[in-house]
């Protein structure tokens, strides 16, 4: 019997790309997290680029991004690489560097298009227009009453996108809510 990773949103219709605005489910793409007193040093030792302050995301290597959620918590996301079906690491990677389970705890949605901040403003109280939320910014906030991490970065075509990480148990809800909010722009 084959083992498949199943995204909670896999059965929902995706939004057609229209006028550049699209919503994509990237939940099967690879992401991992580390937390702990020595987490930043550990990532640097691994040759990764680490944001200097919390709530920022920086490119590290070709396809990888490192996102700082606090001084001691970092997520490494790779939109181009598929996740594996192995049990995520749970024991210390290094002294006081604990792996996190963000591959499974959070779904990953990617909102792209010039009106992405207008769509988000229908759900989220943080000003996500580029003036206030430039590329490289990260917000841990709420959208449509659920907690969400929003990262502003570029995709492989160098287009700016919002990556949204949301508790997988409410990802279907947020997906439908985002589609509803996108309605007027499509």
């Amino acid at each position: 019997m084959t083992v498949m990773l199943t995204s909670p949103i896999h059965s929902l219709p995706s939004t057609p790309i229209h006028g550049g605005l699209s919503l994509e489910d990237a939940s099967l793409a690879a992401r991992r997290g580390v937390r702990g007193r020595h987490a930043a040093d550990h990532l640097r030792d691994q040759g990764l680029t680490v944001p200097p302050v919390p709530n920022q995301i920086v490119a590290s290597g070709d396809d990888q991004w490192v996102m700082a959620l606090s001084r001691r918590e970092f997520w490494i996301i790779n939109p181009q690489q598929l996740a594996t079906a192995a049990m995520p690491d749970s024991t210390a990677i290094a002294s006081e560097v604990w792996p996190l389970y963000c591959q499974h705890s959070h779904s990953w949605l990617i909102l792209q298009g010039a009106q992405r901040a207008d769509v988000a403003a229908k759900l989220c109280a943080v000003d996500l227009r580029s003036e206030a939320f430039p590329l490289g910014a990260v917000a841990q906030t709420q959208a449509a009453r659920v907690s969400v991490i929003i990262a502003h970065h570029t995709n492989s075509q160098q287009q700016p996108v919002f990556s949204l990480f949301v508790d997988q148990a409410v990802s279907e809800y947020l997906w439908l809510t985002l589609q509803d909010a996108m309605g007027e722009f499509i």
Binding site: P54, N55, S70, A125, V126, A139, Q140, T141, Q142
Partner: peptide, 11 residues
Amino acid sequence: PLNGPRNISEF
């Protein structure tokens, strides 16, 4: 102190 100014409803 970590996330900056936010609506009180986030707290």
